[in-house]
């Protein structure tokens, strides 16, 4: 398995065809989480698996040109902050985590049950969890891939880099 140039042409072409659909399906599962089975966590993992597929097929340098680990971490953190801000906005209706846009409250923006913009803050939380989980998982996978490749290329001049805990210094 060549780390730097990815896998074979067949895998690359299949990834080129499929990864976009996987990402769209992840977003769909998260956005309709309040209507059908699914939700932000499952959708986030599906979206992250699209990124993981790109890392596996094209190698880490190509995927770092698309999105770097730092950017993934930024998505992760900002979605966490958005979740807490959304929970704090519940004080508009009386308390932490109160669904201030649901069917019975005066700020309600929802249509009838079963439409996409029903459910008040539930779809917004799903969206935040989608970005959070996708950013976190894909970023950690990219960091793992980058770590392994880094250890291999530095192998000549820095044979065994000591890390506390002994995590992963024996690639070569």
């Amino acid at each position: 398995m060549n780390q730097h140039h990815g896998m074979t042409l067949i895998v690359k072409n299949t990834t080129r065809l499929v990864s976009g659909f996987i990402a769209v399906f992840g977003v769909y599962v998260a956005l309709t989480g309040h209507l059908s089975p699914g939700g932000g966590f499952a959708g986030g993992v599906i979206l992250a698996s699209a990124g993981i597929l790109v890392v596996l097929a094209f190698g880490r340098e190509f995927s770092q040109r698309l999105v770097t680990e730092t950017q993934y971490h930024l998505y992760d953190s900002s979605a966490m902050a958005a979740m807490i801000i959304l929970a704090l906005l519940g004080y508009l209706a009386g308390g932490f985590f109160v669904n201030f846009m649901n069917a019975t409250s005066p700020q309600s923006v929802g249509e009838s049950v079963g439409r996409l913009n029903s459910g008040g803050t539930i779809p917004l939380f799903n969206l935040a969890i989608l970005v959070k989980v996708a950013g976190g998982l894909a970023g950690v996978f990219l960091a793992l891939a980058a770590f392994r490749a880094g250890g291999r290329s530095q192998g000549a001049d820095a044979p065994s880099v000591a890390l506390p805990g002994g995590a992963g210094e024996k690639e070569d």
């Binding site: 309040h34 069917a103 309600s108 008040g120």
Partner: peptide, 19 residues
């Protein structure tokens, strides 16, 4: 359905009742 407006009860519990 009347309290949260969501039709998936699991999501309503996870993200509203027990958020």
């Amino acid at each position: 359905a009347e309290q949260t407006g969501a039709s998936n009860v699991v999501m309503a519990i996870v993200l509203d009742y027990r958020a």
